[in-house]
Amino acid sequence: MSVFLRDLKRFLLVAFGGFLMALNIVIFVQSADLFPGGLTGITLLLQNIFLKYFNIHLPYSITVYAFNLIPVWIGFKFIGKRFTFFSVVMIFISGLFTDILSGFEWLHLTDDILLCTVFGGILNAVSVVLCLFAESSSGGTDFIAIYISEKTGRSAWNLIFGFNCIVLFFAGILVGWDKALYSIIFQYASSQVTTLLYKKYSKITLLIITDKSDEIYATIKNLTNHGATVFEGRGEYSGKTHKMVYTVVSAAESGSLEKHLRTVDPNAFINVIESKDILGRFFKRQPD
């Protein structure tokens, strides 16, 4: 795929993700007065406070753009310029369409706070994952979560969830505990669906019993750039000697790799194990 087509695909993903984010804020979040995670939640909280106590309407877009200045700088400095550029596209589109769609009353679907909490959390996760698939983010604390994940090799979404709960503590004091508690459910649903759909930071161990170890290793190296270790052993049932190829890849790479390995050696016996933790050198593609 050419660089132009790849960037076009990334742009379309972040644009759609940004539109879904805005749609979710208008249909579910604002309808139930919820507070999503990160800077989006802080922006909505400030809008609520200024409107309630000072009768001043803060534009969502301008406020969230201002809050994202420092995270965007972190992205350019420590993560990747192209990664940050597409993240900025997502931030701009989500902010712009949130203000535009807020004027359409027909987008109000339900006043049921539980429905808004659950489906809002799911839709929020989908919009975030679309950006992650485009090798970008939805901005705000996502920059921080990805920075931590890239440095440690572990998912940081639950850490961000904990930070968001602290923010919601203050939201409960200022605007009411019922909205804050439902927002915790919203954020929990969003973080769990994000972890379920996005597997980059999960690790999979493959144990492959094969008679074509060289071809198997070449496939692993070409597709994932990961190494492998080859052991020799004897099958007690057949009494024959076979090779076992041991490798660790990311969960996002595992599905495609297994299909290619099956093509290389249809008779291979492949044991797929979820790895809890990996210590030592492990190849990771860095954001561009």
Rank of each mutant, 00 (worst) to 15 (best):
G233Y: 03
G227W: 07
D7V: 01
N225K: 14
V175K: 09
S136R: 04
L69C: 13
F28C: 06
F133A: 02
Q286G: 06
H57K: 14
V118F: 12
T219I: 04
L101G: 06
S155T: 11
F283K: 15
L181M: 15
V249G: 01
G41N: 09
L46I: 13
H260F: 02
T219G: 01
M244T: 14
S94V: 04
C131Y: 04
G80V: 01
A22F: 05
F28I: 02
I148W: 13
N267D: 14
Y246T: 03
A171M: 09
G153V: 11
A32T: 02
S191W: 01
T195Q: 12
R154W: 03
F35E: 01
T205A: 15
Q286S: 12
F19C: 05
N124L: 09
A252V: 11
G227Y: 11
F50Q: 07
G38P: 12
K200D: 03
W106Y: 15
A268E: 11
N267A: 13
W157V: 11
A32Y: 02
V248G: 00
L44T: 08
S138R: 05
I91H: 09
A252L: 15
I208H: 05
Y65G: 11
E232V: 12
V245K: 08
F50W: 12
S191Y: 10
V3R: 11
V88S: 07
A171H: 10
F92C: 11
Y53F: 14
T195D: 15
Y182E: 08
S213H: 13
E150H: 14
G139P: 05
S275D: 05
L39A: 14
F76Y: 15
L174D: 04
S202W: 00
N55I: 07
G153I: 10
F282R: 09
E215Q: 13
V118D: 02
Y65E: 10
L5E: 06
G95S: 10
Y198V: 07
T224K: 05
K259I: 11
